[in-house]
Amino acid sequence: HMTFVALYDYVASGETDLSFKKGERLQIVNNTEGDWALAHSLTTGRTGYIPSNYVAPSD
């Protein structure tokens, strides 16, 4: 899985969403939902949907 870094803070709007903080590292599990991606946080160990425009690929 590619690793991504959060560009902004995001507060989950539902139970299936994943909250994260700017700078948090995430792995995209499934990116077939258009503007949303299923992601796993390497920081918190949690998995949920995130807005895909809130993250960018990290080196």
Rank of each mutant, 00 (worst) to 15 (best):
H1P: 12
M2W: 10
M2Q: 13
M2N: 11
T3D: 09
T3S: 09
F4P: 01
F4C: 11
F4I: 06
F4Q: 05
V5T: 09
V5E: 07
V5K: 04
V5M: 06
V5Y: 08
A6F: 02
A6H: 00
Y8M: 10
D9S: 05
D9N: 05
Y10R: 03
Y10G: 01
Y10T: 00
V11G: 05
V11A: 09
V11W: 10
V11K: 08
A12Y: 02
A12P: 05
A12D: 03
S13F: 10
S13C: 14
S13Q: 14
G14V: 09
G14T: 11
G14P: 03
E15V: 10
T16A: 12
T16G: 13
T16E: 11
D17P: 02
D17C: 15
L18D: 01
L18I: 11
S19Y: 04
S19M: 07
S19W: 04
F20I: 11
F20V: 09
K21I: 08
K21F: 08
K21G: 05
K22I: 06
K22A: 11
K22F: 04
G23F: 03
G23H: 03
E24V: 00
E24C: 01
E24P: 00
R25L: 15
L26V: 04
Q27D: 05
Q27V: 15
I28S: 01
I28P: 01
I28Y: 05
V29L: 15
N30V: 11
N30M: 14
N30C: 15
N31K: 13
N31I: 14
N31W: 15
N31M: 14
N31L: 14
N31G: 14
N31R: 13
N31H: 14
T32V: 14
T32C: 15
E33K: 12
E33V: 12
E33M: 13
G34P: 07
G34Y: 06
D35R: 10
D35P: 12
D35Q: 11
D35K: 11
W36E: 03
W36T: 05
W36H: 05
L38Q: 03
L38S: 02
A39T: 02
A39S: 02
A39L: 02
H40Q: 11
S41L: 02
S41Y: 00
L42Q: 06
L42V: 07
L42A: 05
L42I: 09
L42R: 04
T43M: 07
T43K: 09
T43S: 10
T44I: 01
T44M: 02
T44S: 09
T44V: 01
G45S: 04
G45A: 04
G45M: 05
G45K: 06
G45T: 03
R46S: 07
R46Y: 07
R46F: 08
T47M: 10
T47R: 08
T47C: 14
T47L: 06
T47V: 09
G48K: 01
G48V: 01
Y49G: 01
Y49K: 07
Y49P: 02
I50Y: 01
I50P: 00
I50A: 02
P51L: 04
P51R: 04
P51C: 04
P51K: 04
S52G: 07
S52K: 15
S52P: 11
S52I: 15
S52H: 09
N53C: 15
N53D: 10
N53S: 14
V55Q: 04
V55P: 04
A56P: 11
P57Q: 10
P57K: 10
P57V: 10
S58G: 09
S58V: 15
S58W: 14
S58D: 14
D59V: 12
D59T: 12
D59L: 12
D59C: 14
